[in-house]
């Protein structure tokens, strides 16, 4: 948190302006998985501005039909988070041509429904990834590439990279490899389609339901929560 925010906080606490804060935005303590108690201040900590809410799927055939459409139209956010992103260009070019599978790249999170975490995530990137993820509209899916997302991979002992992605956001599909080949990535898309069609791709709702736990985990590693004035 930067100086300004600290100052603002200090001022706020002296006066009684805090009562203007909505109850769900009030500072509170949550219990992290390791038992420690972490303070969460939603106004500063939740990038998306507010706590995401569970958005219930439709019922019956309608949802099935929509799921089919979602599965056949996977728009991937073009955010190369790690080395695996070097295999994205081959995927989208003549050799592998993922367009055939209904996979397209989108440059903005608002229009994407799939996030490829291409390998390791440094804490600095994790912060941006979380923000991007929260910006993506529900339903959204996460594909995790390679060892690094499963259990830290090569960088298991690095001070800068997280080890398990599923602690910080819901993941739908894991692809083994370091880095996975484009073919494996395509197989991952096929698997993701299966998952979506069977109605199991509810990561967004999972995230909303367990929001506090995910936030506590994120908070544990991301020390500096002040977001630069990104706009994308």
């Amino acid at each position: 948190m930067n100086e300004l925010l600290k100052k603002a906080e200090a001022n706020a606490s002296t006066k009684e302006e805090k009562s203007f804060v909505r109850p769900e935005d009030e500072e509170r303590e949550v219990i992290a998985p390791d038992g420690s108690i972490i303070k969460v201040n939603p106004i500063y900590d939740y990038f998306s501005g507010e706590k995401p809410s569970v958005e219930k799927p439709n019922k019956g055939v309608v949802e099935k039909f929509l799921n089919w459409a979602r599965a056949e139209s996977i728009w991937v956010l073009g955010f190369g988070t790690g080395c695996g992103s070097i295999e994205i260009p081959p995927l989208m070019t003549p050799r592998f041509d993922a367009f055939r599978f209904g996979v397209q790249m989108r440059p903005t999170p608002r229009q994407s429904n799939a996030f490829i975490i291409s390998g390791y995530l440094s804490v600095k990137t994790l912060k941006r990834v979380i923000r991007s993820y929260e910006q993506m509209p529900s339903p959204k899916y996460v594909i995790a590439l390679g060892s690094c997302t499963i259990n830290g991979g090569m960088y298991y002992d690095s001070y800068s990279t997280i080890n398990r992605l599923d602690k910080y956001m819901p993941v739908d599909v894991y692809i083994a490899g370091c880095m996975p080949r484009p073919e494996a990535l395509l197989a991952g898309f096929v698997k993701l389609k299966e998952i979506i069609k069977s109605g199991k791709g509810e990561g967004a709702n999972l995230y909303a339901e367990n929001f506090d736990e995910y936030k506590a985990n994120q908070k544990k590693v991301i020390k500096d929560w002040n977001m630069p004035d990104y706009n994308w």
Binding site: E55, L66, A69, R70, S73, D97, R100, G102, S138, P139
Partner: peptide, 22 residues
């Protein structure tokens, strides 16, 4: 040098976009 999207892709995209919940 590639095949490109299926010819019906725009319609699917349209339905998908209509199905976005947020």
């Amino acid at each position: 040098g590639r095949h490109g999207i299926p010819i019906y892709q725009p319609w699917i995209d349209l339905v998908k976009n209509a199905g976005v919940r947020t």
